[in-house]
Amino acid sequence: MIETDTRGRTWEYLVITCQPRESLAEARRKVIDHAEYGRWELRRSAIYMGGIRKYWLRRRIMKVERTF
């Protein structure tokens, strides 16, 4: 999903869903791996009835312009 904020910056979003059978340590490891290697930042997290956890990550989309 791609979204533009009020300042004109464009963001790309990723949603990670963790099942109740996964430990909190496993869920945390998934989020940390995406943040470290994919340059994502945590935007929101939620725990739903039944124990499902969702994490919304975002990163800025850099627009590269030609310089010649």
Rank of each mutant, 00 (worst) to 15 (best):
P20D: 06
R39G: 10
E12R: 05
Y37S: 08
H34V: 06
G38F: 05
E12C: 01
M49C: 07
D5P: 00
E26D: 13
E12N: 02
W40F: 11
A46V: 12
E65A: 10
G8L: 08
S23W: 01
L42G: 00
I16R: 01
R59Q: 04
L14V: 06
D33E: 14
R59S: 04
E36W: 03
Y13K: 14
V31H: 02
G50D: 00
A46Q: 12
G51V: 06
A25K: 10
R21F: 12
M62Q: 13
M49W: 08
Y48G: 11
W40P: 01
D33M: 11
L24W: 05
R43Q: 14
I2C: 01
I47P: 02
T10W: 04
G8W: 06
R58M: 04
I32G: 03
I52N: 07
E3C: 07
R66D: 13
E41L: 09
W56Q: 11
P20L: 09
E36P: 01
A25D: 13
R53V: 03
F68K: 09
R28G: 13
I61R: 09
I2A: 03
Y48F: 15
R53Y: 03
I16H: 00
Y48N: 12
E41W: 05
Y13T: 09
S23K: 03
E12Q: 09
I16K: 04
